[in-house]
Amino acid sequence: MFEVWYAIAALLFAIYVALDGFDFGAGILSPFVARTDSERRQVLAAIGPFWDGNEVWLLAAGGALFVAFPRVLASGISGFYFAIVLVLWCLIGRGIAIEFRSHVADPLWRTAWDFVFAAASTLLAVFFGAAFGNLLRGVPLDSEGWFTLALFTDFTTRDPVGILDWYTILVGVFALVALAAHGALFLAWKTDGAVHERSRRMARQLWIAVAGLWPLVTAASHVVNPALFPGMGRRGLAALAIVLAIGGIATVLVRLPRGGFLAAFLGSCAFLLGIIGASAASYFPVMLRATGGDALSITAYTGGGDEASLRTALRWFLVGSPLALLYLAIVLRLHRGKAVAAAEGEGY
């Protein structure tokens, strides 16, 4: 049961990154692909129906930890307390920017909110990447299962570690580039005109950067956490996820130059699901790696809740997750076709 819930939690986080990732990407790129007011509104119209629904997957992932791995959630949220509050502030500011931007026609008002939207999207991509780096590198857990982290120390990955070091910054930059590349494909698929042209061009450049950074980040992960990859070949799910990631990035690189934007975007989703899935499957059963030795790490077994409650929760998960997927399918169908900037006084 702990294995099942570990997989569910990893899957929910991966879906969250693939979904909210494309609207983060659209936010990161909006100053570059959309220059006029109506182009900015076209970008917002493209992500408008999706972004808040996408964020619900983060709640679902957090909920999975709450129900199945309460000790992991307690230790992680406490240890990363300030970083998580910063993420929350960025999410709130970004939501306000999207909702308030077009209510007032004043150029200064709109430029200010456009800046908040782009800056918050950029910071969120880096924060989530750095958080992922922290999990892979490990945190200074004590024997009681708690830890505190400074924002940074000496930028090495040896104790005393901080939230930011050369490795977690590298993963943060990789997340920024990958989510921008992901968002560029979404915009290329969902928009037309000048925004489409610029997104397509940026997508090509960004995906070359992703293809270059991916092996570099993988090598760095091996240096920081040598236990991560050796066991991978014997784990079926890890191998499957790697195939998904390679197939995904190959699809992007083949379909993008030929104008297959939907196929390329789906390839990009597969790539993100694949790299997160492969990392999670290799990381198992660890959920919070300790820098002070494996004995201190919190695993799915030591951090898990009561088996009986996990079984009950599984039944509700099997009811709830198809409903969330159905909602996504309905919204995608309702808003099929190219996004058009809303008229003045309406929409985003």
Partner: peptide, 20 residues
Amino acid sequence: SSPSVHAGTVLFTLMGFCGL
């Protein structure tokens, strides 16, 4: 309550939320 989160941090974030 979390043993690893200090009162000062909580106060700072509370003020941040109030400001926001």
